[in-house]
Nucleic acid binder design. Sequence first.
RNA 1: GCCGGGAUGGCGGAAUCGGCAGACGCAGAGGACUUAAAAUCCUCCAAUAGGUGACUAUUGUGCGGGUUCAAGUCCCGCUCCCGGCACCA
Length: 817
Amino acid sequence: MRPQRPDRYDVKAVESRWQIEWERQHLYTVGSAKDLPKFYCLEQFPYPSGHLHMGHVRVYTLGDVVARYRRMNGYRVLHPMGWDAFGLPAENAAIKSGVAPRVSTMANIAYMKTQMRQMGLSFDWACEVTTSEPDYYRFTQELFLMFYERGLAYRKAGPVNWCPSCETVLANEQVEDGVCWRCEAPVTKRDLTQWYFKITDYAERLLQDLDGLDWPQDIVTQQRNWIGKSTGAEVVFKVPATQDAITVFTTRPDTLFGATYVVLAPEHPLVTRLIAGLPSEQAVNDFVARERVISDIERTAETSEKRGIFTGAYAVHPLTGAQVPIWVGNYVLADYGTGAVMGVPSHDERDFRFARQYHLPMVTVVRPPGQGGGDLEAPTEAYTGAGILVGSGEFSGLDSEAAKAAIAGRLQDKGLGGPRITYRMRDWLISRQRYWGAPIPIVHCPQCGIVPVPVSELPVRLPDEATFTGRGESPLAQDEQWVCTTCPHCGGAARRETDTMDTFVDSSWYYYRYTSSDSDRPFDARQVRYWMPVDEYVGGKEHAVLHLLYSRFFTKVLYDVGWVPTAEPFQRLLPQGMVVYRGKKMSKSKGNTLSPESIMNDWGADATRVFMLFAAPPEKDFEWKEAGVEGAYRFLQRVYRLAVRDLEPEDGKRAEADPIVRRLTARTAYKVSEDVNRRSFNTAVSALMELTNGLYQHWSDLSLEVRRQGLETLVVLLAPFAPHLADELWHELGHQESVHREPWPGYDAKLLVDPEVEVAVQINGKVRFKMTVSAELDADGLGAQALADSRMAHYVEDRQLVKLVAVPGRLVNVVVR
RNA sequence: GCCGGGAUGGCGGAAUCGGCAGACGCAGAGGACUUAAAAUCCUCCAAUAGGUGACUAUUGUGCGGGUUCAAGUCCCGCUCCCGGCACCA
């Protein structure tokens, strides 16, 4: 007899006991067992804001289940954690409170680490990285230099997105609906010289390689949309008057004979040259000046009217030789394609509206298939579909598809364009006018120009002291002592680059650093070869384009220089949904935040984890419900009460239910394994609940052996989900080792099938009764038995048997007329 | 406008390959235990109609069609919701 137990366990005591014990045993270090298969389980590292939020609790719980499951299944698991520690909030806090960013960041990290411990997460802290520490950012800088050497980092002047609230520029990916992705302030335009990464060089590969990934469809689609590939042609319109040429991009070269004008974006560099000395010069300049100050939001708004102005100049149609007027129009984007388009009003909605407004000629050159004559000169709307070419010289009579190739080919022959592919994605703007980021390791020398800092002189350290005013230039630019340096090339006086890198650069390679965080190179090639790619990557959907696209780009560059073994970093992706509270996304401004501290305090880490997993499939948003955690808590207490029961059967009791529970136990082991493999954690938890219910139900009819086997299986299966309680009960059941060192339970496949099964008998597709038959019974036997059943007579009398369908183990369908 | 995803009881969700819709949990109802309550354990719980009742019949997975012995699942046409892209030439 075991001593009487209370009917509840003390959650706090149990959880902290095992947290201490696991740490003492270094239970989650990677270990050196190289003969085991590897598994790299990664979750997006957090920005150290000071506290975990519910979203973090969800990601890390999901990842932890996978990591623990793999370990128990005999994998050597890398499950690291670190800190995406550079970023604006620390700097803004410094402006407000005067605490240096590094000081507040380190304090935040220390606190969040204790929260992660309280969650019972199985990280190997030996791999920890902090992107804001010199021993990390020196390698971010080194990678920048490698990009620079390969021509993948370059400086360019031009209009950029500026967030007035963050006081810095933003990459295209970081502007969402015209507002800053972080602070939601409307983004404006500025003309600045900035550093870029040439991600567009990789557009095609970033697109192609999506096919080989085990990623959810919606994320793949988002990346595809973002890259935005268009296939078409370039067409050159020469401008004899100034010896210039306007190149336009079109996806519809088949409509070229319908081009009656050419439109340039207001920012197009040729505008000034074309109008020089013309009577229209002043008017066009005024127009351009007006349009340029209008924000992107307004300019791209649906309601925005099309405005344009004739430059007074003419270009030559490359195939007909006709003179076409050159316009400047607000509906042409400077940074897509070539910043110029040909106007084909008859076959493009926008051109049609523009032409109608300014009374430009329209020529129909594509006729819908199967349609005869009609008015060619005055269409009432644009026909944008494919069709048969008319009025297109030698190309008349071709269908659109053939004509696209033929016309693009002809342009190429004449040296006036040719087939061309463009992408919507732009180069990645990485400069930031802020202090708390990795300094771009570049020196500006009056003699030598732009000079990279030699790798041997890295890191370019951030000054410890800085003045945070929150206004004007970056604190680095105001630090004369820091800015003034010598040129690595000529030794003369020079100035440092004062921009720091976008924090997305830091997070584009951290998963490599984890594999060898003590390396004196960015990472150890041998370790990376062994561990990469990441086998499971868990993170938020908001990074569908941002972080995931940048990381894929980084990996391709690193792959090309031979530093990493694969061209894709994340084989399997598990994007998790949001935790919603009171019907809305949690946010401070809405006042509906939930603190993980108080929840874990009230219910414990295990119940919090179990509810998170049980409430919904991982990718779905779910609503946090107090009653839900309470349910998870009740379930765990129920398991506890069962596990501390006396295992010895009472006198005179027989083991009648043994076969049932043996099969239930085996089926649960099978189901939980399958479910975790397909990331269906909610149904895995429900299977554990069913086993628990089954043990309760049959307890008094079970032998000692089956009781023990059922309980032990339950506890081991529970270990990835509720790690503290599982370890507690494992010891309670008499074991000395941690349950987390136990191998994952197997099962006897024979036990998965019941010897007898209940099959439904349908008459004309409706279930009329059920029969219990041997599972072995084949289709013929099953059909025969159904027909012979006394309950059948009632349904088939006076009717004719038309068809008999029998599916062994499932059902019988008798079709009668 | 284009692209993707989705819609199942009062609620969250399950149904993995076309084979018994609603597992598991929450909420709710009833019972046992208790002086009582909480906790716990057990039972019930899609809708409609009929029956005291075990039950019987019909309907039912956003809507309308179709394929099939059989459809939440496949096909065609819609509605609505969520997400992405959008004057992208």
